[in-house]
């Protein structure tokens, strides 16, 4: 197991480097001159422009710029945006919002998804099972963009139940965006749980448990669920990494100042350092949680062994 984790950690290095270089190169190719844009209506003095270009390594070719960036990164310096604000500050300020959103979304998708999936799975082809099937198809089909506006319009404007913009009301303001963000994964969790439970209900050890005369409740909770939830737990775990990457659409529509919003603004303003810094961080989250899930898989399911 230790060797497996070490090998996986080593494999993350080329992926991290590759992803950050990919983004770096694309941001490098962005049109226009960000320094000139900085001056707005009043053009900056040529000397100032030259100094800023020097400071941000903008005169170097792509490869050199990237290597200089990596050198700084190795010393824990993510650089600054063109206004001199450290990227680390931006991340430190924006990340808590995204973390709160992720926590809310994960709780919603796990709780509602698993409950719906289990109820549908233990009684396959029942009325409730069909309700779950149809409603998950519907939810999967509604783009997040559309769902966000429906939620804003119905729950925010018409019913007035939830705040629809900003983070002024603490955790409460994360409920609606969290629900919207979670919807797709929620439907997937429900379906995954349903299939998994339905498959395990036919397993030999479940029949044995019934033959021993155990009450239905015990058979379902102690025998079926334990095994059925393994794939679900791993999916939800990996989803943490995805959601921490910031939800560009959800954060934009609900006006939440999180990582996703920051990266969207940075791409528009051609703030290369900010884009690359945040993307590297989110790729790291993504890889890290996937690794955690793979390790967790072996812990939860003794049939899986990594060598």
């Amino acid at each position: 197991m230790g060797r497996y984790v070490a090998r996986r950690l080593l494999l993350t290095i080329p992926v991290l480097l590759g992803a950050s270089f990919l983004i770096f190169a694309m941001v490098y190719a962005l049109p226009g001159d960000p320094i000139r844009a900085l001056g707005g209506d009043r053009p900056l003095a040529p000397a100032v422009v030259a100094q800023l270009r020097q400071e941000f390594n903008l005169n170097d070719p792509l490869g050199i710029q990237y290597l200089k960036y990596l050198g700084d990164l190795a010393q824990g310096d993510l650089g600054t945006d063109f206004r001199g604000r450290p990227v680390l500050d931006t991340i430190a300020q924006r990340l808590p919002v995204t973390i709160k959103l992720t926590v809310v979304a994960i709780l919603i998708e796990a709780i509602i998804g698993i409950v719906a999936g289990v109820l549908a799975g233990i009684r396959r082809n029942s009325f409730f099972d069909n309700v779950v099937l149809v409603s998950t198809t519907l939810v999967v089909s509604i783009p997040i963009l559309v769902l966000a506006f429906i939620a804003q319009f119905v729950f925010g404007l018409k019913l007035g139940l939830f705040p629809i913009s900003g983070v002024q009301e603490g955790w409460y303001s994360f409920l609606l965006p969290g629900l919207v963000l979670a919807s797709g994964s929620l439907a997937y969790v429900a379906r995954l749980t349903r299939t998994s439970v339905a498959e395990n209900m036919r397993a030999d050890y479940v029949r044995t448990a019934r033959a021993k005369g155990l009450p239905n409740r015990t058979v379902v909770v102690r025998h079926t669920l334990r095994n059925s939830l393994i794939p679900v737990v791993t999916f939800v775990g990996a989803d943490i990494g995805t959601l921490l990457g910031g939800a560009i659409v959800t954060e934009s529509v609900f006006n939440l100042p999180g990582i996703g919003r920051a990266i969207f603004d940075a791409v528009r303003a051609q703030e290369g350092a900010v884009v690359v810094g945040i993307v590297t961080l989110m790729v790291f989250f993504f890889i890290f949680f996937n690794l955690v899930v793979d390790v967790l898989y072996a812990v939860l399911d003794p049939r899986i062994r990594y060598e």
Binding site: P14, I23, F264
Partner: peptide, 24 residues
Amino acid sequence: SRVADIFYALPLILGALVVLRSGF
């Protein structure tokens, strides 16, 4: 597979956003 991993780590919307913004 490593090349696929690299692309896989970048969300669809984000990657497409940067490519389209770069305009090439």
